[in-house]
């Protein structure tokens, strides 16, 4: 049972990541491969303000999201100049730059040593130190992000986004500032990813840079594509499948380090197979 709860918490964290990446990839059609960067920014900011300044988790969460949004604003302004494949490559670049910051800005991030001893959340005397109550907190956050994404999707804002994805020129002819819409979506998505980072940091209680490398961004992209582009339910489904599927490999009897590699083989192959046979994913409404 503790194992099941652990897995469900991981599914929740990746659901939030997938929901927010889906806003970018699904609704603007741009393949963004730096989700782990904002995941990491949320985790690091939360870890630092909680361990060094004694912030409460929920306050740290908000600080992390704001910080992530701020950086996303700067990066998004540069990225919005690119289109198609160049956008993807530049986003990989930003992921590696931010990863280098985690790894090398040792006075703040402690570099490869990572930050240990991140406390679990607590508020009004209510502590989320055991995994079951943490799962409830995580699920609440998933629901919150899910509803926010659905609201964005169904609002007039979301309709404009979809129109941009289908035909950017036509939308700008109608007088919409395309750049503003893309940038706003990007910033919101980054803030949501930071929530996932805060949860992760507080759940594992230890973070180090290796979690936030390009591999992780590719994994999150695989989750979104598997679930289906522009489908919020698909994002959650994709997270569940891709977190749970490799776990099955543990039961087949692979040693842990090989199981970790097998996870990469699984989602790598899955990306290839999806691209060949079902580019819109399981529940997607849009093909790349």
């Amino acid at each position: 049972m503790p194992y099941v709860i652990h897995l469900l918490i991981m599914v929740s964290i990746y659901s939030i990541l997938a929901l927010s990446l889906n806003l970018v990839v699904g609704f603007t059609g741009l393949v963004f491969v730096a989700a782990a960067a904002f995941f990491g920014i949320g985790a690091y900011v939360t870890a630092i303000v909680m361990t060094s300044f004694g912030f409460n988790f929920f306050l740290a969460c908000i600080v992390g999201a704001l910080f992530s949004a701020l950086i996303a604003f700067a990066i998004g302004a540069v990225l919005s100049k690119f289109r198609g494949d160049y956008y993807t490559l530049a986003s990989v670049g930003f992921n590696i730059i931010i990863y280098s910051v985690f790894l090398n800005w040792q006075t703040v991030t402690r570099g490869p040593l990572g930050i240990p001893g991140i406390p679990r959340p607590s508020i009004f005397g209510l502590s989320f130190s055991d995994n079951f109550s943490f799962l409830i907190l995580a699920s609440l956050l998933v629901i919150l992000v899910f509803l926010a994404c659905r609201f964005i999707e169904q609002s007039s804002f979301g309709r404009v986004l979809r129109a941009i994805r289908e035909d950017e020129k036509a939308v700008s002819v109608f007088g919409y500032e395309v750049l503003y819409f893309k940038l706003a979506t990007f910033v919101v998505a980054a803030a949501f990813s930071a929530f996932a980072g805060s949860l992760y940091a507080s759940y594992i209680t230890f973070i180090d840079p290796s979690t936030f490398f390009v591999n992780e961004s590719i994994f999150i992209l695989a989750v979104v594509i598997l679930g289906g582009l522009a489908s919020n339910r698909g994002a959650v489904l994709g997270a569940a499948v891709l977190v749970l599927l490799p776990e099955a490999l543990r039961f087949v009897g692979f040693p842990p380090d090989i199981a970790a590699q097998m996870r990469q083989v699984v989602y790598g192959l899955l990306l290839v197979i999806l691209m060949m046979y079902r580019p819109q994913g399981l529940m997607g409404e849009y093909k790349l």
Partner: peptide, 14 residues
């Protein structure tokens, strides 16, 4: 091209 790029990303990872 995006589909090809994502597929090759999968090949690289695997």
């Amino acid at each position: 091209n995006t589909v090809l790029l994502v597929a090759s990303l999968g090949v690289l990872t695997a």
